[in-house]
Amino acid sequence: MEITVTVNGRTRTRDVEPRLLLVHLLRDELRLTGTHWGCDTSNCGACAVWLDGVPVKSCTVLAVMADGHEIRTVEGLEGPHGLDQIQISFVQCHGLQCGFCTPGMLMTARWLLDRVPDPTDEQIREAISGQTCRCTGYENIVRAIRHAAAAERDAAERGAR
């Protein structure tokens, strides 16, 4: 069936089987391979993308269910003026190693900071608790999210002055 999805602000129309998973629409049909998958069972969160502004596990969403809706992926984080602060902070805090969980972590972290600009470590850990990282022991991911929060608060204060 034909579906139309807005992905990173761009309208994309495709004819798909109803059973096509959203993660495969993004990766195979739209060639947005920044969204990964790691487990099939909605445990690992490597496939996290935003659906209507909220991160979900795209291995457990049908592409047809996204018809008429908005998707944001890691490829949609960078703006005309450069990387999103959360991307910068992941680099600055060594928040990634193999880079496989990173896109999903970034999408959840961005969502958290939009909701909670000054999260505690506990809130950060809770927010990413549905996403597995095998490399970092989470330490520097937590640091990176805290770092981004601080940088954005600083920027907001400078902007307010």
Binding site: T33, L83, F90, G99
Partner: peptide, 13 residues
């Protein structure tokens, strides 16, 4: 890191 935070790593799949 630049390619990974952009989702531009290139993995086998």
């Amino acid at each position: 890191d630049g390619r990974f935070v952009r989702g531009r790593g290139r993995f086998v799949d």
